[in-house]
């Protein structure tokens, strides 16, 4: 877990929830560690995704505890106050004190949920001070990425899983349905702003490990940001029903170190320039 400089209450709450979460999940869900099974959210790769994970664990544990408390009372009663044990029914039918109590306690719990969530949400929506902007445009059924640094670098990204695997004629490969021809490439340790839109119907851009999910809406641009911890390949999918091949438009982000990214981008620019040059020559 991230080491928190426990300064604000928000962070203290988060730290608390986080450690409870860690403790309880260590007890209850030993399989969490088993990444193959995936009983919980995917391993986060950005600060925001980590915050979400903490929030999620905290709430889940709290809900779990509430559930156990409420229903241990109920199941105890079902066992103890059975007719077959000869239990005579009491006849009480209300208690204002209890009603107030079980209105107040949930209210307090909810405030406890709302407070840290608000902090995280505000952070998520803050797209200022980004160092790189990538425009993401969704199509039925592919993605287009454009680097908004004036270079004009841009390309489509389409599913590359062979149809023989989809039609079950061949064994499904390792990254079945999660592989594309051209990766979206971004630098690590950099605040990257995404401008997400669509050219036809609704789609949604999501990479679980980044903790970013935003709808792509024709005619409008949605903003999101990511700041990935380190290099690697991260996979996601379109998550808004967009027609026949909604299940077949994956998202793959290749995160490179800053230096590698800079190299990649200049390479792309060079390729683009020479291509443009070629067309000029050709059309003359």
């Amino acid at each position: 877990m991230k080491i928190l400089h426990a300064s604000t209450t928000v962070e203290r709450t988060r730290a608390l929830l986080g450690s409870v979460a860690a403790a309880v999940s260590a007890m209850l869900l030993p399989a969490v560690a088993n990444a193959e099974y995936g009983l919980n959210l995917q391993e986060p790769a950005t600060p925001i995704a980590r915050e979400i994970m903490t929030l999620h664990n905290g709430i889940m544990i709290a809900c779990f505890v509430i559930f156990i408390l409420v229903f241990s009372v109920m199941f105890y009663s079902m066992w103890a106050h059975r007719k077959s044990r000869g239990y005579e029914p009491a006849q009480f039918s209300h208690s204002t004190k209890l009603e107030i109590l079980w209105t107040l306690i949930p209210t307090l719990i909810l405030v406890g949920f709302a407070y840290p969530s608000t902090g995280t949400l505000i952070a998520m929506e803050d797209t200022t001070e980004s160092e790189l902007t990538v425009k993401v445009t969704a199509y039925q059924w592919k993605w287009h990425y454009e680097y908004m640094d004036g270079s004009g670098v841009g390309f489509y990204s389409t599913l590359s899983t062979p149809s023989s695997q989809i039609l079950d004629k061949e064994e499904q490969g390792e990254n079945y349905l999660l592989e594309v021809d051209n990766h979206m490439v971004i630098p690590a340790q950099t605040k990257v702003r995404l401008l997400i839109t669509s050219a036809d119907v609704l789609h949604a851009w999501w990479i679980p490990k980044f903790g970013v999910k935003k709808d792509a809406i024709p005619g409008f641009i949605n903003e999101a940001w990511i700041n990935v911890d380190g290099p690697g390949i991260y996979r996601g999918q379109c998550v808004e029903l967009c027609g026949k091949d909604h299940g077949y438009m994956p998202i793959v982000a290749e995160v490179k170190s800053k230096q590698d990214f800079a190299d990649w981008l200049s390479q792309q620019k060079a390729a683009l320039d020479s291509a443009n040059g070629d067309t000029k020559v050709a059309s003359n």
Binding site: H81, A90, A114
Partner: peptide
Amino acid sequence: MYSTMLIAIPTGVKIFNWVATMWRGSMTF
């Protein structure tokens, strides 16, 4: 977000009332 969370309160009241109805009843299943 806040308004949605509020719904847990009246719904909780209902759940608790059912449990309280069962409490010290004479139950058959």
